[in-house]
Design a protein around this nucleic acid. Structure first.
Lengths: 359, 359
DNA sequence: AGCTTTCTTGCATACGAATGCAACACCTGC
DNA sequence: GCAGGTGTTGCATTCGTATGCAAGAAAGCT
């Protein structure tokens, strides 16, 4: 009771004016002093600074932003945050931005169109200095709003693949190279029959497929040796496992578009008493933390998330620095890395077309 | 070439003044029209609205915030976003806030003191209307800044446990109840020797331990039947497994403070050829998505994350609505739920002190 | 001493939107 | 035809900060 504590501390927002009054100078002088302007004498600065932080002054960034027409903030739009791929990206993006003196305004677009549009609208309303949009499943639902943002002079960068967008800057990983690397790896192990598990229209992950197939055909593998198993959810992955099990001449290696899918496959395969990679090799794509949690750990392709985030931030900063925004779009494509783990191995010795080892 | 595209659209920011000019009215009239004020006639409103969205007008929220002294934004401080517990929380918090017309300003405190202080400082500078701080490992490193925030009239709510904080509103899950439920479950299965795996000083998860022990002693289980295995990282979890393996009279059930730890235990136990729950039962805490990815799926305690987030938002909104902030602190404690899965079962039939079944 | 130069400070204003108050137009009733 | 009301609109100002410009003080120069 000897201390006042949280009693009433309401609305005691200290402004430059308050400090000016206490210091007996004008408000602009305080502004300049705290900004360390060379116009102000050293001793005045010192005195004002002392008074300022004794009074617990904190800049009002909304006022400053209004005046300077800059929020020093970058908007980041991601579809969701439960998918472990995004947290990593957010973290890296935030770190790079902070290093450059920028703050982060995160928006969750939730993958449906209205939400993404709303996010972009909000980001425009709060006057962020630039926006990075991470595509969800290869789409850019709110393309219109994104273009409006650009036309309003706000730099926009797209992270990931999106079809038919001519005038956006982009940064992405070379999924084709990753897919190709996986194919070569599996062929090197001796596999000849392959399965591909993922969404059917392959939206967004199209290049993974293309790269994988290219890798196969480069090694002289016929296209007929590849089967497709459409699946996006866990249930569909389980179904895919059953379909695979029932095949007479089944693939000895399965390529899942995403680590999460690969993890589902491993789970349901082992549930059915099959061994990975003894009976079948599984490879994924993304290299999520998840990939090391499943047993066996997943062979996969590591997306260079830190590099992607850093590149995106730099592209935005470059655009922001350009006084009139240049017309030419910029694209950067980074190369992912193959990560070998335990889920891939040589095919079973006996020919898999006979069902003898299925019992 | 028939279309101009992204040519030059720079700095064409439309303001209320622009619209006023085009409509031949005053700026305040436009402001009121777009705010649907009853002061403005229906036909003027219609005309202005048309002109506004033909011109692509977007409110400038920084100007509005400056004038109204409210940003309609809630700050959320979480230690990190890689831990899958947080994404879920963020999502729920964002959804509840949005439903109430509030936006989210996410800050990653990174668990070290300066960072958390910087986050709170920034949130104060941008004038958020309220702040939810999610404690990292039971600490509130930037307590000073949090109190400064409160004294400046900004509502602050703490999510999670933090020792010795008298004047903060809080919302938390009843970890003790969860721990106790786990203990009862294991005892019901017939276990008599227990191991606890987690950080040694039990910072932040202290109640989980207390509840677990209380549950045991309630069932008449002696305290000597409990061993502690300090571990926070994966490496330490592996070490714990080895120590456990070497014990003459080892526990038949292991309680990990966090699902992630439990997952590590399962992984390294099965790596060493042991069966879960055949040889040893494992239980976790948190009910992350991860818990269903590991094999066997984890028996754990489900934290009511949605409810926690919603409660926190409501506490903040209540505080914001209070004109002078009331002095009395508010605390809400929610009850978690036991989730039974495959990682727990009856103890092995042969006494585990003999090593016969270890081969 | 008078004048220019260099420092330091204050004045005025702008950023874009919201709002109390005054002013004007219109309609009604006498 | 004029007082009083009602319904719309404009004027003036405010939020807190930044900055171009003028003004004043101090100092150096002839």
């Amino acid at each position: 009771m000897h201390e006042s504590g949280t009693e009433s501390g309401q609305r005691s927002i200290v402004t430059l004016d308050d400090i000016a009054r206490r210091a007996g100078v004008s408000q602009p002088t305080v502004s300049r002093a705290l900004a360390d302007s060379p116009l102000i004498s050293a001793k005045t600065k010192a005195r004002i600074r002392e008074i300022a932080d004794e009074a617990g002054y904190q800049v009002n960034l909304v006022a400053r932003s209004l005046k300077t027409r800059s929020t020093q903030t970058l908007g980041l739009v991601v579809p969701q945050v439960s998918n472990p791929y995004f947290p990593k990206l957010i973290q890296c993006f935030a770190d790079t931005a902070r290093a450059a003196g920028y703050h982060l305004q995160l928006q969750l677009s939730g993958a449906d169109q209205e939400a993404e549009a709303a996010c972009l609208g909000y980001l425009r309303e709060v006057r962020v200095d630039g926006v990075l949009i991470v595509t969800s499943r290869g789409g850019l639902p709110a393309r219109k709003q994104a273009e409006a943002l650009l036309e309003a002079g706000v730099p926009v960068v797209i992270l990931g693949w999106v079809e038919d967008c001519e005038h956006f800057d982009m940064v992405m990983a070379d999924d084709a190279v990753g897919g190709s690397a996986l194919a070569q790896h599996l062929i090197g192990l001796g596999h000849t029959r392959f399965g591909i598990v993922g969404a059917t229209p392959h939206r967004g992950h199209y290049d993974r497929l293309v790269g994988f197939l290219a890798g196969l055909s480069e090694a002289g593998c016929a296209a007929e040796s590849v089967d497709h198993f459409p699946a996006v959810s866990e249930a569909e992955a389980e179904e895919a496992v059953d379909i695979w099990l029932a095949m007479p001449d089944r693939p000895t290696a399965l390529f899942a578009y995403r680590d999460v899918l690969a993890a589902y496959l491993v789970k349901h395969l082992t549930n059915r008493g099959l061994s990975v990679p003894g009976d079948v090799s599984i490879v994924g794509f993304d290299n999520l933390d998840l990939a090391t949690f499943v047993n066996p750990q997943l062979t996969t392709v590591d997306l260079p998330i830190e590099a992607l985030a850093a590149t995106a931030v730099n592209q935005l900063l470059t655009r922001i620095a350009e006084q009139p925004m240049q017309a030419a779009v910029r694209r950067e494509i980074l190369t992912p890395q193959l990560v070998l783990r335990q889920s891939s191995g040589p095919p079973p010795v006996s020919m898999p077309c006979t069902k003898e080892n299925n019992k």
